[in-house]
C-alpha cells in the first residue's frame, strides 16, 4: 500500500541536510513501528522516496515523502504515532493513502510555493518602492538570465517558469517551476531581480520558506498540492 506523508521542517531543523533527513525518517519509521516495506536482497532498505530535496537553510511547511507499507492504521492514529517519536521542529501534517497505480511524488513534482522574509538588517527602507520594482520585474515579457550549466553557460528565460511573484505582507511570495526539469530556486529569481536593478544581492537577505509542493493535473494542467493525490484512511 502506498502512503504519502506531508511534514513541516522548522526552526533549527533547517540546518539538517537532505541526506540526513532521509536517515532521520528511516529511524522514525522504526521507532514508530510503521510496517514499512523493505526491498529484496541481502541488505534490504525501506521503500521510501522524497518529493523534492530542500536546501540547507530553508524552512518548510510542505515537505513530502512516499512510503510503501504492508499494513496501516488510520491516518489520525499514524500521524499521532509518528509525531510522538519526532523532534518538535519536524512534524507530520498528514498521512494519506495513494492509489496503487500512483506515480511517486518525486516524479510528478511540478511547482512549489515559497515565502521569502527579509532578515532584519537586509530589509529595504522603502518597502513599497521595493515591491513596486519587483512588480515591474515580473511584468516583463521576458526575464533573461545566464544559467551556468555543466557544459558552460546558457541563456534562459525565467518568465514562463515563474507562475506567481507577489507581495505577501512584508515578504515576497513566489510560485515557481520545480522538479527534475526546470527546477527554479527562489534565490535565482531574486538574484536576477537584484541584478536587474543594479543592486548587489547579499547572501543572507532572505529567510526562505517552502510552503507547498504541487503536481500537475494531466488534463487541465492545473497545479494540485501533493497531499491531494491521497485519501485519508478512516
Amino acid at each position: 500500500m502506498k502512503i504519502r506523508i506531508k511534514f513541516l521542517k522548522q526552526g533549527s531543523m533547517k540546518f539538517i541536510g537532505h541526506l540526513d533527513m532521509m536517515r532521520y525518517f528511516q529511524k522514525v519509521m522504526r521507532r514508530a513501528d510503521v510496517k514499512i516495506r523493505y526491498s529484496e536482497g541481502f541488505s534490504p532498505h525501506q521503500i521510501m522516496s522524497f518529493a523534492a530535496p530542500l536546501g540547507v537553510g530553508i524552512t518548510s511547511n510542505g515537505e513530502y515523502l512516499d512510503i510503501e507499507v504492508t499494513e496501516t492504521e488510520s491516518s489520525a492514529v499514524m500521524t499521532n504515532r509518528l509525531n510522538q517519536v519526532m523532534v518538535d521542529e519536524i512534524r507530520v501534517l498528514s498521512y494519506k493513502k495513494l492509489e496503487d497505480s500512483s506515480k511517486n511524488a518525486m516524479s510528478i513534482v511540478a511547482a512549489a510555493d515559497y515565502t521569502l522574509t527579509f532578515r532584519e538588517r537586509y530589509k529595504p527602507e522603502d518597502l513599497d518602492g521595493f515591491f513596486e520594482k519587483l512588480r515591474g520585474f515580473y511584468d516583463q515579457n521576458q526575464i533573461l538570465i545566464v544559467k551556468k550549466t555543466k557544459k558552460g553557460q546558457k541563456d534562459m528565460d525565467l518568465k514562463p517558469l515563474i507562475y506567481d511573484l507577489a507581495r505577501k505582507g512584508d515578504a515576497v511570495f513566489m510560485k515557481v517551476s520545480t522538479g527534475s526539469t526546470d527546477n527554479i530556486k527562489p534565490e535565482l529569481v531574486m538574484e536576477s531581480f537584484y541584478e536587474g536593478q543594479g543592486w548587489e544581492y547579499p547572501g543572507f537577505t532572505f529567510q526562505i520558506q517552502r510552503e507547498e509542493v504541487y503536481g500537475r493535473d494531466g488534463a487541465e494542467g492545473r497545479l494540485i498540492p501533493l497531499e491531494q493525490y491521497g485519501e485519508d484512511i478512516e
Binding site: 533549527s12 531543523m13 540546518f15 521507532r31 519526532m86 521542529e89
Partner: peptide
C-alpha cells in the same frame, strides 16, 4: 548540525 543540538 554539529552545533545546533535538538537531536532525538
Amino acid at each position: 548540525a554539529r552545533y545546533i543540538g535538538g537531536e532525538v
